[in-house]
Simulated scan of single mutants.
Amino acid sequence: MKKSGALVIGKKRRGENEVMTWKAPEEGWCKVNVDGACTTSCGVQVVACGGLLRNHQGTFLQGFMMKTCSTFECNNCTRHATNHARGLGDAQLWGCLLGLKTSWDFGVRKLVIETTDPTAAIVAMNHPGSLEESSKRPQERDWTMVSEIQQLLERSWEVRVTVVNRDFNVAAHALAQAALSCASGFQWLHSLPPHVLEVVLREASSGNKKVR
């Protein structure tokens, strides 16, 4: 666990008898779960992300989905794989950035953000030195997004960043996958798609929390 100012970065491990499901934050805190998705084929790459904000009671507060498309020169398998890896990395960063923005704009000042991508969590959010240290590999990340994330984290609030197994992040994963099939651009979600709402209700039930 690394702590820097109001920022805490950690990795959530499964307990011996722990149920693999989303866990509500402590009272007074909110949690935003984020995830990214990417498809790459025939020189076209689709990058998407999704996230949802819930309070300590498990109540859904706000959600989002985002999708962008780009083209690239596809002439060998290695480049295809590299582009896919970069696209997925960018998708995870977009999720973290938009998750932070969504939470701040909603008025949250004590936040847990959960992601399945340790690189996005540690590289982007281990401020401020990580940007300089990791800039040796700028081709792997969009450093404009990294800078925006770090600026958000410098605001007057408490943020805990946790890397979790996908079993703890099912709803966000479902939103990211759904975003792949949506129109390009950003969407606020004031209600959840039925299949994602079903996941949220099931997670709340498993954690003995109430969803309204």
Rank of each mutant, 00 (worst) to 15 (best):
L97C: 14
L52H: 03
T115N: 09
T115H: 05
V47A: 06
P25C: 00
A120R: 04
M1E: 02
W188H: 15
S4V: 15
D105Y: 09
R155F: 05
G58V: 00
G5W: 07
P194F: 04
T102H: 01
S135I: 06
A124E: 04
M65H: 02
G185Q: 04
G28Q: 00
K2M: 07
D117F: 14
C38R: 02
V8L: 09
R160F: 04
T71Q: 09
N208Y: 04
G107Y: 03
C77L: 15
G89Q: 12
F186W: 09
N33R: 07
N83V: 15
L189W: 01
R109M: 01
G58N: 00
C69M: 10
T59N: 15
E198S: 14
G95N: 07
L61Q: 07
H195S: 12
P128Y: 03
R137F: 13
V200G: 01
G99Y: 11
H80E: 12
G51N: 13
A121F: 09
T21E: 09
A24Y: 00
K67W: 01
D105M: 09
S184G: 05
T39W: 01
W188P: 10
T59K: 07
L88G: 03
T144L: 13
L100E: 14
A172F: 10
V200R: 06
E148A: 13
K67Q: 11
G89D: 07
V161A: 06
K12Q: 09
D117A: 14
N126V: 04
V8K: 11
G5F: 08
V47I: 14
L98H: 15
N75K: 13
N17Q: 14
L7M: 12
V211E: 07
V146G: 08
S135K: 10
W22M: 01
G207R: 02
D90R: 15
K110F: 01
S130F: 07
L93T: 13
W157P: 02
R13K: 14
M125C: 15
K67G: 05
S156K: 13
K23L: 01
F168D: 08
L192E: 01
F64M: 07
V46F: 02
V163M: 05
K210Y: 01
N126L: 10
L53R: 05
E198W: 05
P118M: 10
A178S: 14
G50L: 10
T71I: 06
E154Y: 01
T119M: 15
W104R: 09
E158M: 08
E27P: 00
K2A: 11
V146N: 08
V159E: 05
A85V: 12
G51A: 12
E132C: 10
L100C: 08
S206E: 11
H80Q: 13
L7E: 06
F64N: 06
G95I: 08
G50R: 10
N75Q: 12
V159N: 05
N208I: 06
G185N: 02
V34W: 08
R155P: 00
R86T: 11
R137C: 13
G63Q: 01
T119K: 14
E198T: 12
G15P: 09
M65K: 12
K67V: 03
G185I: 02
E18S: 14
A171D: 00
V163G: 03
V170Q: 15
E140K: 13
V164L: 08
S147P: 02
T68L: 02
A172H: 11
N83E: 15
